[in-house]
Design a binder for these strands. Structure first.
Lengths: 339, 339
DNA sequence: GGTTAGCACTCTAAGAGATAGAGTGCTAAT
DNA sequence: ATTAGCACTCTATCTCTTAGAGTGCTAACC
């Protein structure tokens, strides 16, 4: 599979030029703009070879070449050099992470999402930290009136979850307090997704007379686990539609409709990253969902504390400025993990 | 300004037909489809009059007529009859309000928003209940570790707000408990937007030595008031783009970009309703924002408890099925207010 | 006087050529 | 191995034409 140096240079030039202009690239253009020291004819021959090998393709006979999916893959894996971010850009990223120390995770994520999209001119997708993978921190029950209370569940990642619950009439203030402190003690340090099984076995045994009440607590936890995955934050939706590949209304609609379905997005951001560290790039049909098969997704997991809790991604057309996007993403994730 | 009965019938026919077909309506079509007992020529004369009076307009000389903004206004105010919803539709609406009694306000709103958009095929906008107009219900501080606590603020509308705060080292468990119960007692029943001023004057006096701590509480309240208005829920974004008036990509982009700016949407949903009860309809340029000047917005405020807390609206093209939209909206709001 | 038939006129949307331009692949020369 | 030259191909764009829908006006009708 070894490409000659010259083929690499040409492939690289085609990708760069096509990314910039969105127009099929001709041999003359490459010879002129990238001064390779060969005539267009030579480049034509090489390009014909590259097409033969499926790195390039021609929209129609008398047009220039554009990179194929395989071409992008090769470029991304072997040829591209990650961009060095301008100091200015780095500063912008650092600022949102340091501006105020005590900040809601959600606010932070929203800001990061905004910023990434404006730095890249693509759309950013962030899968927020869910309860599932977080460790239990604290639980509190706040009585509202005779019958109802508010259950507040806090994870070490800063995520929290509230739920209205019914309190058994019989429960007195001090009983409630004891119950809460007991639960806190027992659940301390556990990962949320380990709690369900544990709860049933142990707590039921110890708390016969409060079973009815715990049923609700239990339901909350279950529901949290189910809803959990679908907290997706989008930024710069309009950006991606400014790309010329979205001149077609149907494509826009199909993407917008996808953007409304957060559970699908969550999947898109979760599945490919299972067990993988670092930044990964999914090009075109490498993505699971049909709606983004003309797009590329650059993404990575991020941690809050020790545990991996979510995914950050940037979605653009396959004709994407990969070197820059990777650089921005890396910078953001680095900052994230410093928290 | 009195239109003859015949002119009314013709205007009404033009609106109905144009809403259905999205094509300019000709005199022949009206004569045929709406059997008015007059020849096309007569209708042509009447239509010429209506155009003269600015109720109708002609895209170009040899085309049929379409309603002008003034035409829609007259139709909506004088001619249209609210649709009777099918039992089936009513049932769908009732179901989400009764399905589970104890439900998060947010979940409910999301569901309502989904449903409204699918029942109308337009986009629904709901301005969620904010803290501002709600009455204070309960406040709790949940210690997390030595330095930090989680402040939970609950309003009678079911809205809640969390905020991380720094706790002064000096504060003991029991002191904290006393403080919380004191605050609860003092703030009970107040509307949130009345708290700010009150807090400063009275609480400061009584709680010299905790001022530092209260500063943060106070900050939370202030921030809540500021962020507050921008909780907007959108449903069925894609729907509105299926309308033929959005054949133009620029229009789509401009709307999408508006949909991302929740503070603008909040304004759109708040300003026109100040002091007004019932359903109001803003047609085309009657709307504040430029992006929706070819759209109509049917909206009304809703209450949770006694206080008006938010707005529900449906956004479609000016060429909108007003009778149906009004009916759906009314049904949803009625259900809302039964809570 | 209100209503209607008839007809010339206008405007658009859609299709058919025609043309320019970009880029190729091949051949022959270097 | 490289390059110049050239015929060829394909698209995008423009113009021209045509069909069709709908009008406004005039003159006839009840």
């Amino acid at each position: 599979m070894g490409l000659s140096t010259r083929k690499m240079e040409i492939l690289s030039a085609v990708v760069k030029d096509y990314v910039k202009t969105a127009q099929p690239v001709g041999s003359r253009t490459i010879a002129r703009r990238y001064k390779m020291g060969f005539s267009p004819a030579t480049i034509r021959n090489e390009m014909a070879d590259l097409e033969e090998m499926n790195y390039l393709l021609q929209p129609h006979t008398s047009a220039g070449r554009i990179p194929s999916q395989k071409g992008y893959r090769y470029y991304v894996d072997e040829l591209m050099q990650e961009e060095r971010l301008a100091e200015e850009d780095k500063r912008l990223i650092c600022r949102i992470f340091s501006y105020e120390k005590i900040q809601e995770v959600e606010t932070l994520i929203r800001q990061a999402s905004q910023l990434m999209s404006s730095l890249t001119n693509y759309t950013s997708l962030i899968l927020g930290p869910g309860l599932k993978k977080s460790a239990f921190k604290k639980l509190q029950i706040m009585p509202i009136d005779r019958q109802r209370g508010l259950l507040v569940l806090l994870a070490d990642t800063g995520v929290m979850k509230n739920k209205l619950i019914n309190l058994p009439q019989a429960l007195s203030q001090s009983e409630l307090a004891r119950l809460v402190s007991y639960l806190n003690q027992r659940l301390e340090g556990l990962t949320i997704d380990k709690i369900t099984a544990q709860l049933i076995r142990e707590l039921r045994r110890d708390l016969y007379h409060h079973i009815n009440f715990l049923e609700t607590t239990f339901t909350l936890l279950e529901e949290s686990l189910a809803e959990d995955e679908s907290r997706v934050f989008l930024g710069g939706i309009t950006n991606i539609f400014n790309q010329p590949e979205f001149g077609n209304i149907e494509k826009i609609k199909s993407l917008i409709s996808l953007f409304e379905q957060h559970s699908l997005l969550a999947n898109l951001l979760t599945r490919p990253l299972a067990g993988i560290e670092g930044i990964i790039i999914k090009i075109g049909r490498e993505n699971i969902l049909e709606e983004v098969q003309e797009c590329s997704l650059v993404m990575t997991t991020y941690c809050l504390g020790k545990e991996v809790v979510g995914t950050i991604g940037i979605l653009g057309p396959t004709r994407m400025e990969y070197p820059r996007v990777v650089a921005v993403l890396r910078q953001v994730v680095d900052q994230f993990e410093k928290l």
